[in-house]
Amino acid sequence: MNQIAGAKIPSVVRRVLAVTIGGLGDAVLFSPVIKALRYKYPRETIDLLVASSIAEELYSQSEYLNKIFLVRTLKKRAILNVIGLLPFCIESIKVGGYDLAVLATGLNPGLRYVLQYLANVHASVFAPLPGVMGTDIECNLQLASMFKQDASMAEVFVPLSKESLDEALGILKEHGLGGADSPLADYIVIYPSRDLPRRVRWPLSKLIEVAEDLKEKHRGIKVVIVGSEAEGLEWAREDTKRIADANLAGILTIPGVAALISRARLVVGNDGGLMHIAGATGVPVVAIFLNTPKSYRPPGKHVRLVTPALDCCSPRGYVPHLAADCIDKCIAVSQVVNACADLLNESVEHK
């Protein structure tokens, strides 16, 4: 089983398995590979293996894929990840396995061996590690170039259907922000994201300050909140001045959120999957990276990273625990507001 990005691809390929076992953002950054595979194999079977239910929901609308398999492999204990792959392995054996597996960067080597021996995968290639070879997207573009020589044609993409656009426009109309037969309001999207064991979130109170400042300085602009239901409830509790014009967190489907983001003037938020969706649609993005490596930056030409100014928060890889006072001080509200103002003042032609 070949295990380097430059490995030889089998001369005869009838069934391909694309594998991105990570979060939503990882799946979005893997999209150039999916597109390049369909270009290389226009009539062959191309299936996708994901570990995120929201990634499955997003790519269910993609014209490039035959089938999507969801596995439960985001566990702390390796044995649980192996067990999570077993149902897929059984399905794979039933259909004769795959001639080629194409793996996203960062896949655990143990899981690669499970796919090889238990899922009947004959050969595989995978993206190099980010940081060493560049950003996540650069690594995936390098992998995509193996299947489509003009790598610039294999751009990051998010599937957007008429149904998802109708969903987004309908909810905007319900909240008085236009859509359907009335002009669409200028709006910015804010996503709070959430703290994870290795990812620290900029305080929600400061995002609310950013929203208030932007509305004061850019008259007529509206603020829309997206994210999970829990994030929406948290915003509602802290947004005592009712700065947000529409709190849609937990209301839309993931394809609907992607469509909503695609029509926004600007997207602002912490590191997370929606940041990558925004970049993939071509919308300007202000991404707040407290302790996220810059190699995870979102795709797109109109991206501003806001990173800590203090050494105690310097993002040298993931920092498990940052002191509360450091989190509070290391990125000022003015830094984020200024980054937003720069992008709002630019003339951006969306994809």
Rank of each mutant, 00 (worst) to 15 (best):
E57S: 13
L58S: 09
Y59I: 05
Q61D: 14
Q61N: 15
S62N: 03
E63H: 11
Y64G: 02
Y64W: 00
L65T: 04
N66K: 00
K67R: 02
I68W: 06
I68F: 06
I68C: 02
V71G: 05
V71W: 01
R72M: 04
R72A: 03
L74H: 14
L74Y: 14
L74Q: 15
K76W: 14
K76M: 15
K76S: 15
K76Q: 15
R77L: 11
A78Q: 14
I79C: 12
N81Y: 05
N81Q: 05
N81K: 01
V82G: 07
V82R: 07
V82T: 08
V82N: 02
G84S: 02
G84M: 06
L85E: 09
L85H: 10
L85S: 00
L86G: 08
P87L: 10
F88P: 00
C89F: 10
E91S: 12
E91G: 10
S92D: 07
S92Y: 04
S92H: 09
I93G: 11
V95H: 15
G97F: 01
Y98D: 08
D99N: 00
L100M: 01
L100E: 04
A101L: 07
A101M: 00
L103C: 15
A104Q: 13
A104R: 04
G106R: 11
G106H: 09
L107A: 08
N108Y: 10
G110Y: 08
G110F: 07
R112N: 04
Y113P: 00
Y113I: 11
V114L: 06
L115W: 10
Y117K: 00
Y117W: 01
A119T: 03
A119M: 05
V121C: 00
H122K: 03
H122F: 07
H122E: 05
A123D: 10
S124W: 05
S124V: 01
S124Y: 12
V125H: 02
F126A: 11
A127Q: 08
P130G: 03
P130W: 07
P130V: 04
G131F: 09
G131N: 04
M133L: 14
T135F: 06
D136L: 12
D136C: 09
